[in-house]
Structure formats: structure tokens, C-alpha cells
Computed example of a mutant assay.
Amino acid sequence: MRRDELTKLTVDNIEEKSFILVVKIPDSQTYSERTFTITYLEYIGKYKKYAALRPVNASTSRFFYKNAKGKCTTQVVDINKLGAMQSILPKFLNL
């Protein structure tokens, strides 16, 4: 996924079925909807854990919110922060 697609991802784009997550990307660079599924149970568990952190008083339906001290704030993650994740995650995962 492109970082602008991740930025625009909303909770309505993610459909949770029994042991499958169906993610729809409606606003892609190619102007056609893309869909993919996540079936790995560990990733589904991480999704549920992150979704549970979502603030109750969220002002938008965007999925990614800034996280501070283990809790999501009411600010959404912007496109520049998502772009910086490619350098932050390997350090966090000791890669």
C-alpha cells in the first residue's frame, strides 16, 4: 500500500469476518478499488488490539491515530509520519 492510501484508510474499509480481515482500498492511484485479505491469526490479533485503542471520541473515521504512552490520542497520523515509519520500524524490531 502507498502511504497516502494508508492515510486515507478508514474503519469502514476494514471488514472483520470470523478469522479473516478484508481490507478495501477505494481511492488508489490507479482509480480502481483494490481488496486484499489478512488470514494470519497473529496479525488479526494485532489489528484487534490496535482497534481497541482507538479513541471513543474520535472526530474522524480514519483508522490510524497517533499513539502516546500506549494510548491513542485524538490526532490522526499524517502522511509524513507514515513515510518515516520505514526507518522507525526496523530500529524498533532490531533489524
Rank of each mutant, 00 (worst) to 15 (best):
M1V: 15
R3K: 14
D4E: 10
E5Y: 03
K8A: 15
V11G: 13
N13E: 02
E15P: 02
K17R: 12
K17N: 07
I20C: 11
L21A: 01
V22I: 09
V23P: 00
V23K: 01
P26I: 00
S28A: 06
S28I: 03
S28E: 04
S28N: 07
S28P: 07
Q29C: 08
T30C: 06
T30K: 11
Y31H: 11
E33I: 04
T35N: 01
F36I: 00
I38Q: 02
E42Q: 12
I44F: 03
G45E: 09
K46R: 15
K46L: 13
Y47R: 03
K48T: 04
K48G: 06
Y50H: 09
A51T: 05
V56E: 15
A58S: 13
T60A: 04
T60K: 05
S61L: 09
S61W: 05
S61N: 15
F63R: 07
A68T: 06
A68K: 15
A68L: 10
A68Q: 12
G70T: 01
G70I: 02
K71Q: 07
C72N: 13
C72R: 06
T74H: 07
Q75N: 11
Q75Y: 10
V76K: 03
D78N: 05
D78M: 02
D78T: 05
N80K: 14
N80P: 03
N80A: 06
L82M: 02
L82I: 05
G83C: 00
M85W: 14
M85C: 12
S87G: 10
I88N: 12
I88T: 15
I88K: 12
L89A: 11
K91P: 00
K91N: 09
F92Q: 10
L95V: 14
L95Y: 12
L95D: 14
